[in-house]
Nucleic acid binder design. Structure first.
Length: 524
RNA sequence: GGCCCCUUCGUCUAGCGGUCUAGGACACCGCCCUUUCACGGCGGCGACACGGGUUCGAGUCCCGUAGGGGUCACCA
């Protein structure tokens, strides 16, 4: 049986690095037919755990990373909130005390701090001399008479080594002497994270502790606690962390300013912001960025693409397989092929995976993804008219790879506005319509021929325009750019004939006539 | 600073002593396709951090050096 867990603190957002850690845990459990558990590390007792947890659970749900036990679904080891398991931790602390693996310590924080600074000044490693350790009740009484209160501290070994067998790093050895007598229980009886974590992993029957490498230095003390409590150690696997774009430092949500200096990161963010703005999304400036999962959901990424990208950040099957579906990643994932070195987050490659997955999405699904953006932008009525889905299918098909994320549909907003509301790109209008002397007459003449195109479909439109060019003895390039600007307002877009078909005969004609009559000053 | 971890193209990586004049992907640069922008096709640029060993032979094993990172709480 394999049981893995991901243990988020309720912080109000789901970090992309956290998703990768969760993904690896999830993969391991799914592949073995085991369980993936979500445990909430809220020993810090925040005010509004529920609200801070929601974005995290929503994020996992959206990504399709489902948990077998945890918040909302419960499970045989309820509760899964550390804040509700204080008694279990306190009992463990008592056992540690009883067995002599921990002691009551009456030091005041400032006293220890002073010792610490002194040691640092003298250039030696701080080792607590256990001056305020109470080994018996008499000592405890004496300290209490001084008005001191006790915390429970681990009585760490001061010789020998802790040997950790890590599934990714191999054997890691640390001298016990370099460890501190960590506090595991406060004077008020509440317990600290390391004790809680070890107790939970044991009580929840976790078999594999797969977590970020930053926890590696914490592992000796956890091993000490687990062994003192007589627990069987779980398998440990410390993942290299996800590094910042273009760098090697750990990706953090608090260093956005720095990441903005990375061109690719800034570009991705701007891409998202443009979508948010046009779709009138109310986004939280604090969490709307490529480090946080919400960003991808709100701009219309595919969960499969994100998972695929994250899977390959620090793991590979071989030198060439890039594309993984959920099923294939569950089948192929193994811990021993996880890399040891940090992998830097590459916004461009993330987008490349997204584009790839999007290109294989059937039109029907694309339409469904894209529709909410048009509705929020106020470009289509709500509920949509029945012809709309047909129109959207044609747009989405014609747009093809140009729609990388669902929100990109708003690049084609010109399909949905009335001729008088069409906005023209100024430079394009100047270059293609205002300046060339032949543009307006050609447009007018072609507009006159629209009526004869039957049916009004791309193929027929193309034939008609080509014939028109032949008659006029011009190259197609001499009119098509003007035609594009006149009908879409844009210098670029998808196929011209598909565009006109989508717009329809009346719209096409009305737009050409408006463009022809338009003075430069009123392109608005 | 102590302790721990890491080190192949700009980035993600393949490589588990000879098949490596180091392979793939993203990015970048050309060319082709083309009504624009994309897509696509073809080609190009581009890396074993350094120094010692071991070995007939090292990207691959060992030891140093350098660099990078993580961590050192009555936070999680």
């Amino acid at each position: 049986m394999v049981r893995t867990r991901f243990a988020p603190s309720p912080t109000g957002y789901l970090h992309i690095g956290g998703v990768r850690t969760a993904l690896f845990n999830w993969l391991l459990a799914r592949q073995a037919g085991g369980q993936f558990i979500l445990r909430i590390d809220d020993t810090d007792q925040q005010r509004n755990v529920e609200a801070a947890l929601k974005p995290i659970l929503d994020g996992f749900r959206w990504l399709g990373i489902d948990w077998d036990e945890g918040p909302e679904v419960g499970g045989p080891y309820e509760p899964y909130f550390q804040s509700q398991r204080g008694e279990a931790y306190a009992a463990a602390a008592a056992r540690l005390l009883a067995s002599g693996h921990a002691y009551r310590d009456y030091a005041r924080p400032e006293e220890l701090q002073a010792q610490r600074e002194e040691a640092e000044k003298a250039g030696r490693t701080f080792v607590y001399d256990r001056r305020w350790m109470a080994e018996d009740d008499a000592a405890a009484d004496r300290f209490e008479a001084e008005g001191r209160t006790a915390v429970v501290r681990l009585k760490m070994p001061r010789e020998g080594q802790c040997v950790i067998q890590d599934r990714i790093r191999g054997e890691v050895r640390v001298d016990w002497a370099s460890e501190q007598d960590h506090v595991v229980q406060r004077a008020d009886g509440s317990c600290l994270y390391h004790l809680a974590s070890v107790v939970d992993d044991h009580d929840f029957a976790i078999t594999h502790v797969v977590r970020a490498a930053e926890h590696l230095p914490n592992t000796p003390r956890q091993v000490f606690i687990a062994e003192a409590l007589g627990y069987t150690l779980p398998e440990y696997a410390h993942l290299p962390y996800v590094a910042e774009p273009g760098g090697t430092a750990k990706l953090s949500k608090r260093k956005l300013d720095k990441y903005l200096k990375n061109k690719d990161f800034a570009q991705l963010l701007e891409h998202g912001q443009r979508i948010a703005e046009r779709a009138h999304l109310t986004v939280d400036a604090d969490t709307f960025n490529p480090v946080i999962v919400d960003f991808y959901r709100e701009t219309g990424f595919l969960p499969d693409a994100i998972l695929n990208y994250l899977l390959l950040l620090g793991w590979s099957l071989d030198g060439s397989t890039e594309r993984f579906t959920r099923a294939s990643m569950i089948e192929s994932f193994t811990l021993d092929r996880v890399n040891k070195a940090p992998a830097s987050f590459d916004p461009q490659k993330m987008l490349a995976f997204e584009a790839d997955w999007m290109s294989e999405l059937e039109p029907k699904k694309k339409v469904a993804m894209v529709l909410p953006y048009l509705q929020r932008a106020g470009l289509v009525s709500q509920p949509p008219e029945c012809e709309l889905s047909d129109k959207l299918t044609r747009i989405v098909t014609a747009a093809g790879d140009r729609i990388k994320v669902a929100g990109d549909i708003l690049d084609f907003d010109f399909c949905f506005v009335s001729p008088e509301n069409l906005k023209y790109d100024e430079k394009a209008f100047e270059k293609r319509i205002a300046k060339p002397a032949e543009a307006r007459p050609l447009l007018e003449q072609f507009a006159a021929r629209l009526a004869s195109i039957e049916p009004f479909v791309a193929e027929r439109i193309e034939a008609e325009l080509k014939q028109f060019c032949e008659e006029q003895d011009i190259k197609i390039g001499q009119i098509i750019h003007a035609l594009r600007v006149a009908t879409t307002g844009q210098p670029v877009g998808f196929g011209m004939f598909e565009t006109l078909e989508v717009l329809g005969r009346e719209q096409t004609e009305a737009r050409i006539r408006r463009a022809v009559l338009l003075e430069n000053s009123e392109k608005g």
